[in-house]
C-alpha cells in the first residue's frame, strides 16, 4: 500500500508540475538550471534576447508563472503573464470575448475550466494579485493545466510581483528544417545557467524539489521493502515454528530440502500477492482521501499508472522472497527426528 500510494502521489505531483511545460505547444522549454522549484526560475530580458538570437529559433515566448490562493477550493491558482501578441504562438485560442490590452493593468483572461469552476464569464470581475480585474475573454489551450489558469498582460503581472523584465519560462519553437536537439545543445552550451526541458523526465534539471521528491519516494520504497521483508520473515518464521512437526514429517518421509524451500517460498509468494492486491485496493482509498484533504486539494492529483501496480507487484514479490528465505532455509535444515519430537 505504501509503495503504491507513494508512487501514485509522486507521479501525480510530477505530472502536475511537468504539465506546465506542455502548455506552450513549444518544441522545448527553457528554465533556470537547478532552482528549488520550477516557479522560482528567473530569466531576464538579456537572456531572452540571446535565446531569440540563437540560430534556428523561430519564436521564444517568455511567460511569468505565479500562483495565488484564490479561495479554499483553489489554494494554488495559476496565473500566467504573457504578451497578448504571443498568445497565438503559445497555442491559446480565445473562445469568448477578446484578449486584454498589452499594457492594461486591470484586465485578464480566464481559461475555460477556471471560468467554469469560478462561475465567471466575459465582463465579470476577478480578484487577483490584490486588484480587481475585468475578464475580457475566455481561452482554451487544450491543456488542463493551462485551461485551469488565468492570463494577465506580462508587464502587469511583473509589476504585481515586483519582478520587472523577468519571466519564469521561455517556450521555444524551432524553425522548420532545424534539428531541435542541435538548437537545444546550442542554448545549453551558450547559457549554462539555463536548461532546456523537452519531456517530463527532464523536468528535474530545473526543479530540484521534484528530484528530491523522487529520491524520497525511492528511499521510502526501499524502507517499505525492508520493513515488509522483516514482517514477512517474522510471519513465515512463526509459521515454520508452528509446523515444525509437520515439516519434520515431510523430511522424514523423503521430501528433499529443495522441495521444502519451494513449499515455504510458494506459500510466502501467495501471501505476498494477496497482500499486494489488498494493498493496491487500500492505496486507491488512501490516495483518493489525500487528494480530497483541504490542505492538499488542488495541489495533489493522484496518477494511477500501470507502472504503479507493477511496482506493487514486484515490490511484494521482492519483499516476500527476501523475507521468506531464512524461514525456508530453516525449515529445510530441520533435523527430522528432532522436529518430530517438537511439541
Amino acid at each position: 500500500m505504501t509503495v503504491v500510494t507513494l508512487a501514485v502521489t509522486s507521479s501525480g505531483l510530477e505530472t502536475s508540475a511537468a504539465a506546465i511545460i506542455s502548455v506552450g505547444k513549444a518544441d522545448f522549454t527553457i528554465a533556470q538550471k537547478g532552482v528549488s522549484e520550477i516557479l522560482s526560475s528567473t530569466i531576464d530580458t538579456g537572456e531572452r534576447a540571446r535565446i531569440e538570437a540563437t540560430p534556428g529559433v523561430q519564436s521564444a515566448v517568455g511567460v511569468l508563472v505565479e500562483t495565488e490562493k484564490i479561495n479554499s477550493d483553489n489554494p494554488v491558482f495559476i496565473e500566467i503573464g504573457i504578451s497578448p501578441t504571443q498568445l497565438k504562438q503559445f497555442g491559446v485560442t480565445i473562445v469568448r470575448g477578446h484578449a486584454y490590452a498589452p499594457t492594461a493593468s486591470h484586465q485578464c483572461m480566464l481559461g475555460w475550466r477556471a471560468a467554469a469552476n469560478l462561475g465567471l464569464h466575459v465582463g465579470s470581475s476577478f480578484k487577483a494579485n490584490g486588484t480587481v480585474n475585468t475578464v475580457t475573454g475566455i481561452y482554451s489551450t487544450g491543456n488542463s493545466f493551462g485551461d485551469d489558469a488565468a492570463m494577465f498582460p506580462l508587464p502587469a503581472i511583473q509589476g504585481y510581483n515586483r519582478v520587472p523584465g523577468i519571466v519564469t519560462l521561455v517556450f521555444v519553437k524551432v524553425k522548420p528544417g532545424y534539428p531541435v536537439s542541435k538548437v537545444e545543445q546550442s542554448i545549453n552550451h551558450n547559457m549554462p545557467e539555463l536548461t532546456t526541458i523537452r519531456t517530463a523526465s527532464q523536468f528535474g534539471r530545473a526543479d530540484r524539489n521534484l528530484v528530491y521528491l523522487k529520491a524520497a519516494v525511492t528511499g521510502s520504497t526501499i524502507l517499505a521493502v525492508i520493513i515488509g521483508a522483516v514482517i514477512v520473515g517474522n510471519t513465515m518464521l512463526l509459521s515454520v515454528f508452528e509446523r515444525t512437526r509437520e515439516l519434520g514429517l515431510l523430511r522424514a518421509v523423503g521430501w528433499t530440502r529443495r522441495r521444502i524451500v519451494g513449499l515455504i517460498l510458494i506459500e510466502a509468494v501467495a501471501l505476498g500477492l494477496i497482500g499486494a492486491c489488498i494493498g493496491v485496493g487500500l492505496s486507491f482509498a488512501v490516495s483518493t482521501g489525500l487528494e480530497h484533504l483541504p490542505a492538499l486539494r488542488g495541489i495533489l492529483h493522484t496518477n494511477f499508472t500501470p507502472m504503479a501496480f507493477w511496482r506493487a507487484l514486484y515490490t511484494a514479490l521482492g519483499m516476500t522472497l527476501i523475507g521468506s528465505l531464512y524461514p525456508a532455509l530453516r525449515a529445510a535444515f530441520l533435523v527430522p527426528l528432532r522436529a518430530l519430537s517438537y511439541e
Binding site: R251, A252, V253, G254, W255, T256, R257
Partner: peptide, 9 residues
C-alpha cells in the same frame, strides 16, 4: 549421498 531419496523410495 541422497538420504531423502532413500527414505522416499
Amino acid at each position: 549421498h541422497d538420504l531423502s531419496y532413500f527414505r522416499r523410495r
